[in-house]
Amino acid sequence: MSGKKKADLKVIILGDYDVGKTSLICRYIDGKFQTQEPTVGAAFFLKQWGPYNVAVWDTAGDERYSGLSHFYCRSAGAAILAFDLNSPKTFESLWARFGSILEAANEDCLKVVVGTKLDLLNQSERDITAEEGKKLARELNEHLDLKKLPHEPYFETSSLNNQNVKEVFEYIFQHCLPLSADQQKRYNTTDRKSVIDLMEDSGEHSRKKKCC
């Protein structure tokens, strides 16, 4: 029944159209590289990591025409901010376009800046230096204690060559799971427990308490 269980962690991915968000996720989840058609069909993927269920949300292509909702970011514990290493415009977008909707994420949401399409990058001609990327990552995570992390939440990846993809997710999970004492407390309060999941509960309760 663990499939019916609410995810322990929600990870979202943000970034301009065509930076390779779905490819990144698919590479991690399926271990395959696919040139993706714009994302269709799944609200989120569930991934099991140790004892935890992680929901990885993809954007469903709705960011293309400014259609992303706050709902997408609600209670996200981690956000991957993806940009195309070959396109400075997509890097600038991260702050400009997605900063405001990230307000809906958890206060302690970890933001990981991820450059994609490393395989296409000609290192001698790169526009965005790794330093710039790391700087943005530091700024976005100002509110967090990052000392516990091995390095800045910044990665350069290639979904085609499977470079650094797993590392992004491992990094996130290690920071967010096992849940920190604070989070653990939040999850274990009756408050959290009494959140109703219609799917789960409808099987657990009888409908007609009243009628004998």
């Binding site: 994302t39 269709v40 069909g41 799944a42 609200a43 469903a60 292509g61 709705d62 293309r64 025409y65 400014s66 259609g67 909702s69 706050h70 709902f71 997408y72």
Partner: peptide, 18 residues
């Protein structure tokens, strides 16, 4: 927003301020 999400994952195209 939740129902929009369902529409979007089945290919619905969303555009705000339009």
């Amino acid at each position: 927003q939740a129902f929009s999400r369902l529409s979007a994952v089945f290919g619905g195209i969303y555009c705000l301020t339009a």
